[in-house]
């Protein structure tokens, strides 16, 4: 019955050393996603921030600036509604809305569905950049690898500079840290230096950018970063 101890008697006490990550199934599926994404020709970016930090707005402005240069696709993650996908669709790029129905993060399985739905829209067409807007949440999405090439964590000026210290996982696991809504700096007691210092302490390799989607300030380094990914 049992290969380990060869016992057949019910009620036998088994001690099984498993030593397997609880995320093993997710991570295996994420690696498949990565293969899919690469077959599409794309570099994928997993965008993580609290609700309202400006993820969808950043994507809208990025599409406006880069749509002529690159083929862009978007996967939107939310707990409910198609609203963010509608905003992206209005910019004329292929987009899939994933709704988690309550879950506070995207996982590799749901993202897998999203990639297939996107492939259905694309037909034979390829992509250069695939943005995955995660569910608005600075905590939970950080645990789930989706198959992305790059992870971008964002906090907006009104949220306050203590977020890297309070939510370390997202900063430890990301390659890029964006401070958004810098047009609001005059109205908030937000020290970018303090936020950057805490973030770098957690992850010295983190690339840091500050920008405003409203004024376009700081967008050049963001766009340069995206261009470098597509080379």
């Amino acid at each position: 019955m049992c290969d380990d101890c060869g016992c057949v008697s019910p009620g036998h006490h088994h001690v099984v050393d498993v030593n397997q990550s609880l995320l093993a199934a997710n991570d295996a599926l994420a690696r498949k996603n990565r293969e899919h994404i690469e077959e599409l020709g794309a570099v994928a970016i997993n965008l993580i921030s609290s609700p309202g930090s400006g993820k969808t707005t950043l994507l809208e402005k990025t599409i406006e600036r880069l749509a002529k240069e690159f083929r862009i696709g978007v996967i939107e993650g939310d707990i409910e509604t198609e609203r963010d996908a509608d905003r992206i669709r209005a910019k004329g790029v292929p987009v899939v809305q994933l709704t988690t129905g309550g879950a506070c993060h995207l996982d590799a399985a749901l993202t897998h569905k999203g990639i297939h739905a996107l492939e259905d829209q694309l037909g034979e067409k390829k992509l250069d950049l695939l943005f995955i807007e995660n569910v608005g949440n600075l905590v939970c999405p950080a645990t789930f690898y989706l198959g992305e090439h790059q992870r971008v964590v964002m906090i907006s000026v009104p949220e306050g500079p203590d977020k890297p210290a309070k939510y370390p996982k997202a900063f430890i696991s990301s390659q890029v840290f964006i401070i958004s809504k810098t047009d609001l700096l005059p109205y908030f007691d937000f020290s970018p230096e303090a936020a950057i210092k805490d973030a770098r302490q957690l992850n010295p390799r983190l690339m840091v950018m500050s920008l405003s989607a409203t004024t376009g300030d700081g967008f050049d380094s963001w766009l340069a970063y995206l261009r470098s990914l597509c080379q």
Partner: peptide, 8 residues
């Protein structure tokens, strides 16, 4: 986050 051991 690792499942180390299970007793059954």
């Amino acid at each position: 986050l690792i499942l180390l051991q299970v007793e059954m």
